[in-house]
Simulated assay, not measured.
Amino acid sequence: MKTKTTTNPSTYSKVWRIVLCVAIPLAVGGIAAALTGSAMKSFQQMNQPQLSPPAWLFQVVWTILYVLMGLASYMIWSAEHSVFRNHSNVRNWLIVYGLSLVFNFCWSPVFFNLNWFWFAFVWLLALWGMIIYLVIKASSISMAAMWMMVVYLLG
């Protein structure tokens, strides 16, 4: 006699949340890369310092960073359902995270397509400020998420 095994519906929900959380920053990065593709090629043709990493390494590193960002957002989002978490901290973290994705998305076209280097620098400072906020706030919600955001900050 066969026994029927069932999968907990919450397992599916968890998997879909993880997929969604990772897909969002990957999509942001992918669309930004597609918008700046030709400008990136001309940038790479400029004189680069000898210690500049190869162009393919940027794609690998940013893919890893986007996955880590997505996993961190999943951990924070999941923490919202814990009775031990402050829901306003989670909500604020997710709002600033969403805003940081917008800033991250806009930086590439501003720098590579428009060549607004000084504006891109100021934009980057604002983005770093948001990421530092995310790191600090994540430390009270999820230490694993905090360390993933530290890697993003250092990247």
Rank of each mutant, 00 (worst) to 15 (best):
M1H: 14
K2P: 11
T3K: 13
K4S: 04
T6G: 04
T6D: 12
T7I: 15
Y12T: 12
Y12K: 10
Y12W: 13
Y12L: 14
S13P: 02
K14S: 08
K14Q: 11
K14W: 13
I18C: 04
L20N: 02
V22K: 03
P25M: 06
L26M: 13
L26A: 10
V28G: 00
G29R: 11
G29L: 09
G29Y: 12
A32I: 06
A32T: 11
A33I: 05
A34I: 10
L35M: 13
T36S: 15
G37R: 13
S38P: 09
A39Y: 00
Q45A: 14
M46H: 13
Q48N: 06
Q48S: 09
P49Q: 10
Q50F: 10
L57D: 04
Q59S: 14
V61A: 11
W62R: 05
Y66L: 03
V67Y: 02
V67K: 03
M69V: 12
G70V: 00
A72R: 07
Y74I: 08
Y74H: 08
M75I: 03
I76G: 07
I76C: 04
I76W: 03
H81D: 12
H81V: 05
V83N: 15
F84S: 10
N89Y: 09
N89P: 01
R91V: 07
W93T: 12
L94F: 01
L94S: 03
G98T: 08
L99T: 13
L99S: 13
V102Q: 07
N104T: 14
N104Y: 03
F105L: 01
P109Q: 07
P109C: 00
F112E: 03
W118A: 04
F119Q: 02
F119T: 08
A120F: 05
W123M: 08
L124G: 08
L125W: 14
L127A: 05
I131A: 10
I131C: 10
I132M: 11
L134G: 06
V135E: 03
K137R: 13
A138N: 03
S139T: 07
S140W: 03
S142M: 02
M143R: 14
A144C: 04
A144S: 06
A144N: 07
A145R: 00
M146A: 14
M148C: 03
M149F: 15
M149N: 15
V150W: 12
L154S: 01
G155Q: 07
